[in-house]
Design a binder for these strands. Structure first.
Length: 868
RNA sequence: GCCUCGAUGGCGGAAUUGGUAGACGCGGCGGAUUCAAAAUCCGUUUCUGGUGACAGAGUGGGAGUUCGAUUCUCCCUCGAGGCACCA
C-alpha cells in the first residue's frame, strides 16, 4: 500500500477492476431481491454540470448501499437527447442538431464514467435514435386509435416577424427573443393526450405513494386541482344578443349565486368574439388581450382590466339582467372560460367591481359581519348563513347548496359537476429536433396513423434549422407520402412531439433496452418495475413526474406492464448554488466573474468583507449566492475538480455539504476539507497495514478505554445505517464516520487487542464509506487484507452490546433552564435521580426562597425542577 | 397573481416522539514542527458583560400553547422552486 493518498492511481485501479469483471452489469436473476435505482437522465447539453454530479452521486450511493444489502441492483444511464438547445446550437454554429447531440453524449459519457458510477452501461440508450422513438410512435398510433390522443386547436406564442412559434422561454417581456417583435397568441391545430381522463386516478393513487415527499404530492394534488361544484347556466337575453342560448359557468360557490352582479368571460370566449364584431372599442380590447405570450405567470400578474360587451344574460334564479364583461383575469383554459362574478365574496371579483363601479351585494353573513366594505378582507370569502337571498335566507352553507342546486336542476339551468384544473396535454411542437408525430393527413380519410409496418417515421439527421419555422415543413421528401388507407397522395405530419414524451417512459425501456419485439419485454419490465428509488431535481416535481405517472398507467392499460405507479420512492434533490461576483459597467450592465478568479478578504472573525479579482487586484461586488448558471458565471467545472482532487473527494464533498433535498453551496475550502479527511483515512490505514495482521478481536475482555473505542465504532455503524439506509441524510452519515476517525486516530496501538480493535475500526470506515467514496474504499479494503472486493462485501452489522454504558449523564434544569449535570447509574430509579438533583448545589442556589411545585423526570435525559 | 418549500454562529450545516441549541466540517485566532514555506499536529472559537468562577441573551420578526418550543398553532417579512412550449 502506497503511503501517500494518490487518487489518480487508486481511482484508475478501482475502475479497471470493476470494468474487467463487468461488476455492475445485471440480469433478471431469479430468486434474488431486486432494487431498481434510477436518476433522472441528463440532457446532453455539452458537458456535465455540478447538478448532474450531485444527482448521480446520490443515486450511486443508494445503489451501492443496496448492493451491500445483498440485492440485485439495476442502475442504468441514458440520454434525454431531443430538445431545443440542440437547435439553438445548430443555428449558432451551423452544425446539425444530431451531430452536436451525439458528440456531446460521447464527451459526457466519459465524464460520467470518471465519477465511478455503479452503472450498467450495457443498457445505455439515447432517445433521439429511431431504435428508441419508434416505440414512442408505435404507442402513439395505438393511443390515437383508442381516442386517448385527439386533435383540437390550441393557443401558442406567435412571432409575427420570424413567422414561427416560440416556447415560453423564448418570450421575454412579451417580445420574441430574437426578433424583439411583440408576440401574439395564435390558435393552431395540435394533438392532445387525454390526461384528464386519468385525473381522478392520478389524484387518488398519490395516496399509495408513502415513499414520496409530502411536498411533491401536495403540489401534484393542487395541480390536478379537483373542485366539486356546479355548472350554472345564464340564459341569454334575446333582445341584447339577438339569439337564444345559455352562458355556462362553473362555480364552487353556488351558495353565493344570489350575490352575482355580473358575468365575466375570457377574451377568446365566443360571446366576446360575437360582441366584438359590432363594437370596435371592445374589439380593440380583445386584440390587446391577445398580445403578449401565453405563460400563465405573465397573464396572472397583469393589471386586471375589463370592458363591458353591451350584452346581457339573465340571472337563473331571479331573472334579473346581468351585464357580460370581458375580463383579462378569466382564463379560457379553465372551466368554461366564463365566471359568475360575486364581488362581495370573491377577492378578484371584488377588486374588479371596485375598479369599474359594479354593484357589490353581500349574501353571506361572515365573521366580518353583514357588509363588505373596502378594503377586501379574507373573511368575506368565508362560508356562512345566507342573507339578502329571498327564500334562501338564514340557510347555512350546506342547506343553501342543496336548495339552490335543487331549484337550478328543476329549471334545467344547473347541475352538479366536478371540475379539474388539470388540462389535456398538448404535445405538438412546430420544431425539427424531436420525435416525428406518426400521422398522415389524407383529404379523403382524414388523420391516419402510420401503420405499424411503416414505423419508425425516421427524422432526417443532416438538417440545420434556421429559426424560421420547422425545416420538415419545407422538405417535400419528408412530408410527401401516400395515404396508407386509400393510397392517394397525402401529407405527412411535420410537427414533432414534446420532449416530455420521451422522458415519460424511458424508465420502462431500461428493463429491456435492446428488445426488438415491442416497447418493453413484459417479463423484464415486471421483473424490475416499479423503480424502487427515483432521484432528480425538485424542478420536476409537477410536470415530468405527472406525465411519467400518466404514461405508466397508459402502458399498464395497453397490457405492457402490471404495476400502477412508476416510482415507489422519490428523492427530490436541491440545487447546487455558488457565490456570484460582478462589476457594474458604464452602460449599467453587469460583468460576472467566476468564483475561481476571485480572492476574498476577511475581517478578524473570518467574516467576508470584500472580494478582489485575482488578476488585477481590484475589488468586485459580492452578488449573493445563486443557482450555478452560465448567465451569472458562477459555475464550477466538475471536470477540473475531479482532475485536481479525484472523484472520491468530489463525491464526498457533495454528500457532506448538505442533505440531498436541500440546496448545496459550493465551497472550495470545503472540497479541500473533504480531501484532507480522505488523506487522514489513507494515512492511518497505511500505517496500520504496515504492521502484522492482528489476531481476532476478543470483544468480551476489553478494558474500559477499549470499550469506549468499540462503542465509537458501533455508534458510527448505527448512525450511518439509519442515515444512508432510511433517511437519506448522507451528510450526517459522513459526520459519524469523521467522528469515528477522530477516535481511531487517538486510540492506542500498543497491544494486540488495540490493533485488532483498530482493524475493526478501519474496516468499518472502509465499509461505511464504500457507497460514498467507492474508489478509496476499494483500495482500503484490499490493504486491510481482503481478497474479495468491497463492492461484494455486506454492510457492517451493529453489535448492540458494544453500545451499552454503565452510567449516564443527565441534565438538571430549574424552570426549564440548564443548571447542572448529573452522573447516574444507567438504571437508576426515578426517586434516586430526583433526590440527587434536589441536592445539586446550583439547584439549591436557584431555588433559594422559592417553593418547588413540581419535578419532571425524563428517564435517561433530564430532571426539570419547577419552582416559584 | 396562484401552488409548494425554506430561514439556526463568521460560513455549510446538526439536534428520535417537544427535553443539554450549535454534532461534523469550513473559516478565524493562538501555539508546535520547519532555516523558511507547504503539509501536518495541538488548543480555542454563538453573542454581550466579567481577569475569572459565572451571569444574561440567543434558532428571520411578532403573538400563543407548555414545566420545557429550532420542533406545535396563528400572523408577518424575506428567499427559492413550479405555473402547462427550458429540461
Amino acid at each position: 500500500m502506497q503511503e501517500q493518498y494518490s487518487p489518480r492511481d487508486i481511482e484508475a485501479a478501482a475502475q479497471a477492476d470493476w470494468n474487467q469483471t463487468n461488476a455492475f452489469q445485471v440480469s433478471e436473476t431469479p430468486g434474488q431481491e431486486t432494487f431498481y435505482c434510477l436518476s433522472m437522465f441528463p440532457y446532453p447539453s455539452g458537458k456535465l454540470h455540478m447538478g448532474h454530479v450531485r444527482n448521480y452521486t446520490i443515486g450511486d450511493v443508494i445503489a451501492r448501499y443496496q448492493r451491500m444489502q445483498g440485492k440485485n441492483v439495476l442502475q442504468p444511464m441514458g440520454w434525454d437527447a431531443f430538445g431545443m438547445p440542440a437547435e439553438n446550437a445548430a443555428m449558432n454554429n451551423k452544425v446539425a442538431p444530431a451531430s452536436w447531440t451525439y458528440s456531446n453524449i460521447d464527451y459526457m459519457r466519459t465524464q460520467l464514467q470518471s465519477l465511478g458510477l455503479a452503472v450498467d452501461w450495457s443498457r445505455e440508450f439515447a432517445t433521439c435514435t429511431p431504435e428508441y422513438y419508434r416505440w414512442e410512435q408505435w404507442l402513439f398510433t395505438r393511443l390515437f386509435k383508442r381516442g386517448v390522443i385527439y386533435r383540437k386547436n390550441g393557443i401558442v406564442n406567435w412571432d409575427p416577424v420570424d413567422q414561427t412559434v416560440l416556447a415560453n422561454e423564448q418570450v421575454i417581456d412579451g417580445k420574441g427573443w430574437r426578433s424583439g417583435a411583440v408576440i401574439e397568441k395564435r390558435e393552431i391545430p395540435m394533438y392532445y393526450f387525454r390526461i384528464t381522463d386519468y385525473a381522478e386516478e392520478l389524484l387518488t393513487s398519490l395516496d399509495d405513494l408513502p415513499g414520496w415527499p409530502e411536498q411533491v404530492k401536495t403540489m401534484q394534488r393542487n395541480w390536478i386541482g379537483k373542485s366539486v361544484g356546479m355548472e350554472v347556466q345564464f340564459p341569454y337575453d334575446v333582445d341584447s344578443i339577438g339569439g337564444e342560448g345559455r352562458l355556462k359557468v362553473f362555480t364552487t360557490r353556488p351558495d353565493t349565486l344570489m350575490g352575482a352582479t355580473y358575468v365575466a368571460v375570457a377574451a377568446e370566449h365566443p360571446l366576446a368574439t360575437q360582441a366584438g364584431v359590432t363594437n370596435p372599442k371592445l374589439q380593440a380590447f380583445i386584440d390587446e388581450c391577445k398580445r403578449g405570450g401565453v405563460a400563465e405567470a405573465d397573464i396572472a400578474t397583469q393589471e386586471k382590466k375589463g370592458l363591458p360587451t353591451g350584452l346581457f344574460v339573465r340571472h337563473p334564479l331571479t331573472d334579473e339582467k346581468l351585464p357580460v364583461w370581458v375580463a383579462n383575469y378569466v382564463l379560457m383554459t379553465y372551466g368554461e372560460g366564463a365566471v359568475m362574478a360575486v364581488p362581495a365574496h370573491d377577492e378578484r371579483d371584488f377588486a374588479f367591481a371596485l375598479e369599474y363601479g359594479l354593484p357589490i351585494k353581500p349574501v353571506v353573513r361572515t365573521s366580518a359581519g353583514n357588509e363588505t366594505p373596502a378594503p377586501w378582507q379574507d373573511a368575506y370569502a368565508e362560508k356562512g348563513t345566507l342573507i339578502n337571498s329571498d327564500e334562501f335566507n338564514d340557510m347555512d352553507f350546506d342547506s343553501a347548496l342543496t336548495a339552490i342546486g335543487d331549484v337550478l336542476e328543476q329549471k334545467q339551468l344547473g347541475a352538479p359537476r366536478t371540475q379539474f384544473r388539470l388540462r389535456d396535454w398538448g404535445i405538438s411542437r412546430q420544431r425539427y429536433w424531436g420525435c416525428p408525430i406518426p400521422i398522415i393527413h389524407c383529404d379523403t380519410c382524414g388523420d391516419v396513423p402510420v401503420p405499424e409496418d411503416q414505423l419508425p417515421v425516421v427524422l432526417p439527421e443532416d438538417v440545420v434549422p434556421d429559426g424560421a419555422g420547422s425545416p420538415l415543413a419545407r422538405m417535400a421528401e419528408f412530408y410527401e407520402c401516400e395515404c396508407p388507407t386509400c393510397g392517394n397522395k397525402a401529407r405527412r405530419e411535420t410537427d414533432t412531439m414534446d420532449t416530455f414524451v420521451e422522458s415519460s417512459w424511458y424508465f420502462a425501456r431500461y428493463a429491456s433496452p435492446h428488445y426488438q419485439e415491442g416497447l418493453v419485454d413484459p417479463k423484464a419490465a415486471n421483473h424490475w418495475l416499479p423503480v424502487d428509488q427515483y432521484i432528480g431535481g425538485i424542478e420536476h416535481a409537477i410536470l415530468h413526474l405527472l406525465y411519467a405517472r400518466f404514461f405508466h398507467k397508459l402502458m399498464r392499460d395497453e397490457g405492457l406492464l402490471d404495476s400502477d405507479e412508476p416510482f415507489k420512492n422519490l428523492l427530490t434533490q436541491g440545487m447546487v448554488i455558488a457565490e456570484t461576483y460582478y462589476r457594474l459597467e458604464e452602460n449599467g450592465g453587469k460583468t460576472w466573474f467566476n468564483p475561481a478568479d476571485v480572492t476574498v478578504e476577511r475581517d478578524a472573525k473570518g467574516k467576508i468583507i470584500a472580494a478582489r479579482l485575482t488578476s488585477d487586484g481590484q475589488t468586485v461586488e459580492i452578488g449573493g449566492v445563486e443557482k450555478m448558471s452560465k448567465s451569472k458565471n458562477n459555475g464550477v467545472d466538475p471536470q477540473s475538480m475531479i482532475e485536481q482532487y479525484g472523484a472520491d473527494t468530489c463525491r464526498l464533498f457533495m454528500m457532506f455539504a448538505s442533505p440531498p433535498d436541500m440546496s448545496l453551496e459550493w465551497s472550495d475550502t470545503g472540497v479541500e476539507g473533504a480531501h484532507r479527511f480522505l488523506r487522514r483515512v489513507w494515512r492511518l490505514a497505511s500505517q496500520h497495514a504496515q504492521g502484522e495482521r492482528p489476531a481476532a478481536l476478543d470483544a468480551a475482555s476489553l478494558s474500559d478505554d477499549q470499550k469506549a473505542v468499540r462503542r465509537a465504532i458501533h455508534l458510527a455503524i448505527k448512525q450511518a445505517s439509519q442515515d444512508i439506509g432510511q433517511n437519506h441524510k448522507f451528510n450526517t452519515a459522513i459526520a459519524a464516520v469523521m467522528t469515528l476517525m477522530n477516535v481511531l486516530e487517538k486510540a492506542p496501538q500498543a497491544s494486540g487487542q488495540d490493533r485488532a480493535l483498530l482493524q475493526e475500526g478501519l474496516e468499518t470506515v472502509a465499509l461505511l464509506l464504500a457507497p460514498i467514496t467507492p474508489h478509496i474504499s476499494h483500495g482500503l479494503w484490499q490493504a486491510l487484507g481482503h481478497s474479495d472486493p468491497v463492492i461484494n462485501a455486506p454492510w457492517p452489522k451493529l453489535d448492540e452490546s458494544a453500545l451499552v454504558q454503565d452510567t449516564l449523564q443527565l441534565v438538571i434544569q430549574v424552570n426549564g433552564k440548564l443548571r447542572g449535570h448529573l452522573e447516574v447509574a444507567a438504571h437508576a430509579s426515578r426517586e434516586t435521580v430526583e433526590a440527587a438533583a434536589r441536592l445539586n448545589e446550583n439547584v439549591l442556589r436557584f431555588t433559594e426562597g422559592l417553593s418547588i411545585r413540581k419535578v419532571i423526570v425524563v428517564p435517561g435525559k433530564l430532571v426539570n425542577i419547577v419552582a416559584n
